[in-house]
């Protein structure tokens, strides 16, 4: 995957937070995943097929997803199912929106929702896996992209 292609994802994440909340998310410097797992408490993973193969995931803690859910639904204390749904929808939106750049044959699966911190969720990501650190309202999240 090229640097330019990674920028498509970063732009989509930036636009998402601006559109939904009116507040920009800060993007850290992307790095290639090594041994250190970049997985937080709630994760949405989407498989990619077609000419490009691999997966992406978005992972975040409860606080970030609660704030986002509150922005959309005015829910004060969303339950864990709602937070999982939120992270799945967010990941789906990111993967769907990058089709503007990758084209309609960038085929995306429905999101797989993961609660907790499995040792690793690399199985569908094709190395090298790029990790983009995200900071929004002082809460961190990660976007991981691993495409052939």
């Amino acid at each position: 995957m090229t640097e330019g292609e990674l920028k498509f994802f970063i732009d989509v994440v930036t636009e998402y937070f601006e559109q939904i909340t009116g507040e920009s998310a800060g993007m850290g410097i992307p790095y290639i995943k090594s041994e250190e797992p970049a997985v937080l408490s709630f994760t949405g993973l989407i498989g990619i097929s077609g000419p490009r193969k691999g997966a992406i995931y978005f992972t975040a803690e409860k606080a970030l997803l609660s704030s986002l859910t509150r922005e959309i639904l005015d829910l004060v204390d969303p339950d864990d199912d709602s937070l999982l749904d939120m992270v799945g929808e967010l990941t789906n939106t990111i993967a769907g929106n990058v089709r503007k750049s990758f084209g309609a044959d960038f085929l995306i699966s429905v999101p797989m929702l993961i609660k907790g911190k499995p040792t690793d969720i690399l199985m569908r990501l094709k190395p090298p896996v790029f990790i983009v650190p995200i900071l929004w309202r002082k809460e961190k999240a990660f976007l991981a992209v691993g495409l052939e």
Binding site: A95, G96, N97, R99, G103, A104
Partner: peptide, 9 residues
């Protein structure tokens, strides 16, 4: 209403 925002879709 979809996230698939390419023009073909």
């Amino acid at each position: 209403i979809s996230a698939l925002s390419d023009s073909q879709t």
